[in-house]
Structures are given as C-alpha cells and as structure tokens.
Amino acid sequence: MGKIIVLGQMEGSQVSRISLEALSGARQLAAATGHTVLAALFGPGDPPEQLAGADIAEIIRLPNAELADYSPDHYVAAAEALIAAEQPELLVTGHSYQIRDWLPRLAARLGRPLISDCIGVRDAGAGRWVRPVFQGKISADVQTSPGLVLVSFQSGTYRADELGSGSPTVRTVPVDLSAVESRLQREEKFQEAKGAVDLSRAERIVAVGRGIGEEENLQLAHDLAKALGAEVGSSRPVVDYGWLDHDRQVGSSGQTVSPKLYLALGISGAIQHQVGMKNAGCIVAINKDANAPIFEIADYGIVGDLFDYVPALIKALHAR
C-alpha cells in the first residue's frame, strides 16, 4: 500500500499542535485507505519525545543545517527531494501560516493539486475532500485527480489526543540542498509592544465586527460593554479601518481570548476569528444573517439587526 507523509512543523523542540492534529487526521486516512503514515521532520535535532510513542510507522528526518530556520526556497527543495525518494500518495500538513507560505509553491513545482484549509474527508481513496468557501458560510466537496495530492487541514479538524500509541522507527533521508540559494533575508521575529488592554484577561468581551457599519456606531458597543462590565474587542476589519487599536483584535492574527462571556455584534465568524474566541465560556451572537458561521459556535443567538436589539439589551441590563 501507499504512503502518507505528514510534514511536522517544529516550534522550538516540539512539534506544533496543528501538526499533531494533521498526524491524527493522517491516521484516520490510513485506516480508510490502508496506507502507512510517516512523519517527516525538517532540520537538525532529535525527534521530539511527543512522537516517540505515537501511532505512526516511521519518523523521517531531514537533518540538513539549511532547514534549521524557515526558508521557503529550502523547504520546497527539501520536500521535492523527499517526495521523489518516498513517492507518497498524500502529503498532509496543518494549515499554519508557514504552510500557507510555501506549500502552494511546492504544489506548483510538482504540478499537483493542493487542498488548502481542508475541514474534512468525504472519501480519501477516491480523492474527495471538504473545504470551506465564502469564509465558512458554505462548504464544498472537492474532487482531486488521481496521483499525489497535497492537503493542509484547518486547525481543529482532528484531535491531537486521538492519535493513538505505537513505536515508530526513525530513519534519515539524505537530501542535498547545497545548490539551493535563499533569495530572502529574514530578521528576528518580534511582537509589537503591548498596548493598554489585555483582552486575554477580560472576563467579558463585547466584540464588534464590520456589521457595526460606521465608526460613530462604536459608541453603542462601548455602552453595552459598560452595562456588562466588559472590554471591547473586534474582528479584523474594524482594526484595519483604524476604528480600534490592534490589541483589541481577536483572532489568528490578534488576541486569543477565553472570557466567561463573548458577545459578538455583527461578526460573521470566519475561521480566523473563531480560533481566537471559540473557547469562551458563553458565546452570544447578534447577526442579521441566520446562516452566519458565528451561529455554529454560539450558545445564544439573536437573528436580527444589532441596532434594534443592542439598545433594548442595554436597557434590560440597567433594569437588572
């Protein structure tokens, strides 16, 4: 039977959580297709403890010094060499920012289809995958042609703790990257200086999205926040427009929060927003679109115009 290679992304000496989820997903694909699962790790350093007892057949190391730090040119060349040597049926990864950066490039070099942001598998043997379109408002079944397919799974599609246990062997695959030139110079990673608010510690958050319409309307959100004893947070567009500071943005490129209450006003609930707030204790959404993805994770939903419901809610809170 064939091979499924999972590319494990390292974070320091650990494999990232989204990579473990991808491994767990690959195990399920293997169960359905009869393939074996191999985890590939780029760069020097021993395989992490996390994988020592994982239910995978083999750990493949590409210990080249050139792979110690991320470089799209080197990663594409290394993966190309790995695929040439191992001839897998599937190349599976987590849909991280780093993967978004280089996997399409690899797909173009190989001339093979890439299912990015995959959220499920309809039929792995027949090449039928599920992915979100229109920012999660609609799902699509997608068919790939026979041959190698590249898949990156959205975070949360599979559970890392369902990986199961086994005793993988470790093998080194030698690849020569000496001819690869890096065309980018990268400086050290950094975070912006912390602002005035720390949403990660807030107990209650009123979050506003593009549905608030205009900057002046933000006052309504501030009023509601005051009545609830909450901080104001937002989706990305509100920060992009310059209406709120970046440290109030919730989501994959902003804050991750877990308040007792997250009240979303006019936020559609795109995945990049959800990853930042889905662990809130109680999620309330007010949105005029009954099909908005935010309702998929909301405990309480109000389908309607926020300008009708928020003033009444503020009144009810004052009357409490």
Binding site: A140, T144, Y300, I302
Partner: peptide, 22 residues
C-alpha cells in the same frame, strides 16, 4: 481539483435562538 457540490454546513452546536420583540 474540481468542485463537486456546495452545501450549507451542518451545525454542530445547539444554539438557543431568542426570538420576539427587542
């Protein structure tokens, strides 16, 4: 890679929808 079928995603969470006047 071709689209086969589009559909509204299945809901996984039980949301309590509140209805009535504001």
């Amino acid at each position: 890679r071709t689209l086969q079928r589009l559909y509204v995603p299945e809901k996984t969470k039980e949301t309590v929808f509140l209805e009535g006047s504001p």
